[in-house]
């Protein structure tokens, strides 16, 4: 089933600056997709538009089959959980559990306490339930914000730069959390290493969709990466360099696991070649 179905969406800011032009994208249930692109490419605008905060726009946008228009925005938003780049924009209530309950209470959902417990458990912050959110670290605030979104049990998660501003440990913890989460998600990021760990598919956005496909495939498109000012993950750069030295991999690995598998394959291949030469 299509959770998100976008056809030829264009959006221009009030001052006349074009932000998005003819963007089309479709996401099936359970799929994880990253929108990547340089600063100012329209990634955040795109997410906010899907969440119904940027109207009017041209084209068609449906979430769970419901068409997004100005008058249906509140209803469509019930299917969506939007994680803001800065968790302080999102956290409002005096305690963590109250904040996590904020969405379900507002939407009049049932089993609020169960939802809160479940969301806190899912984000591994059960022990913070009674704490004041503003006293927490940035990484923990992100988790509180994610828990607040999960408690609403949305069909589609929109994550705006989820790894921005996190220290390495918090970043890798968050990546693991998102990777293991069984949710349909669309994340805007320019952190390709994080995207490589989390998503199945990427969309390169620069006002319009420049590329759509696997991250590994995008890594082989040097021109597109260069134009978008994107840095490939270290592991991809390593294998590209090895490829230039004659140890070409079959594909460009983008995660550590893929890199290890590819390295083993290259080593085995080179061993075989050297055995062949010796024979």
């Amino acid at each position: 089933m299509k959770v998100l179905d976008i056809e030829g969406v264009s959006f221009t800011y009030e001052d006349g600056t074009p932000a998005l032009k003819g963007v089309s994208l479709s996401i099936d249930e359970g799929e994880k997709v990253a929108v990547v692109g340089p600063n100012g490419a329209g990634k955040s605008t795109f997410l906010h538009l899907i969440a119904g905060f940027r109207t009017p726009f041209e084209g068609s946008l449906k979430v769970m089959g419901e068409r997004l228009e100005e008058r249906t925005a509140d209803q469509v938003r019930r299917h969506i959980g939007l994680l803001f780049q800065d968790p302080d924009d999102q956290i409002f209530m005096p305690t963590v559990e109250e904040d996590v309950a904020f969405g379900p209470v507002n939407l009049g959902l049932d089993r609020v306490e169960d939802r809160v417990i479940q969301a806190l458990r899912c984000t591994s912050i059960e022990d913070l339930a009674k704490r004041k959110p503003h006293r927490l670290s940035h990484g923990m605030k992100k988790r509180v914000a994610i828990a607040g979104v999960l408690a609403m049990e949305p069909e589609l998660l929109l994550l705006d730069e989820p790894t921005a501003g996190l220290d390495p440990r918090s970043r890798s913890d968050l990546i693991e959390l998102l990777r293991n989460m069984k949710r349909t998600m669309l994340m805007a990021t320019h952190d390709l290493e994080a995207a490589a760990e989390i998503v199945d598919r990427v969309v390169l956005l620069n006002g319009s969709v420049v590329f759509e496909g696997g991250l590994s495939e995008l890594m082989s498109k040097d021109d597109a990466l260069e134009r978008a000012g994107l840095e490939p993950p270290q592991i991809a750069r390593l294998f590209k360099r090895l490829g230039a030295m004659g140890y070409g991999p079959q594909g460009v690995p983008v995660t550590l696991d893929q890199g290890v598998a590819e390295a083993v394959r290259v080593i085995e291949r080179e061993k075989g070649r050297s055995r062949g030469r010796n024979d």
């Binding site: 906010h48 969440a51 905060f53 509140d74 938003r77 019930r78 969506i80 959980g81 939007l82 803001f84 924009d89 999102q90 409002f92 559990e97 109250e98 309950a101 904020f102 969405g103 379900p104 209470v105 507002n106 939407l107 609020v112 306490e113 809160v116 607040g148 979104v149 609403m152």
Partner: peptide, 17 residues
């Protein structure tokens, strides 16, 4: 901040758990 509130179902009333 206001969009943050709206995205979590806030209309015009602060409700408690």
């Amino acid at each position: 901040g206001y969009e943050g509130l709206r995205s979590r179902g806030f209309r015009s009333d602060m409700k408690l758990m």
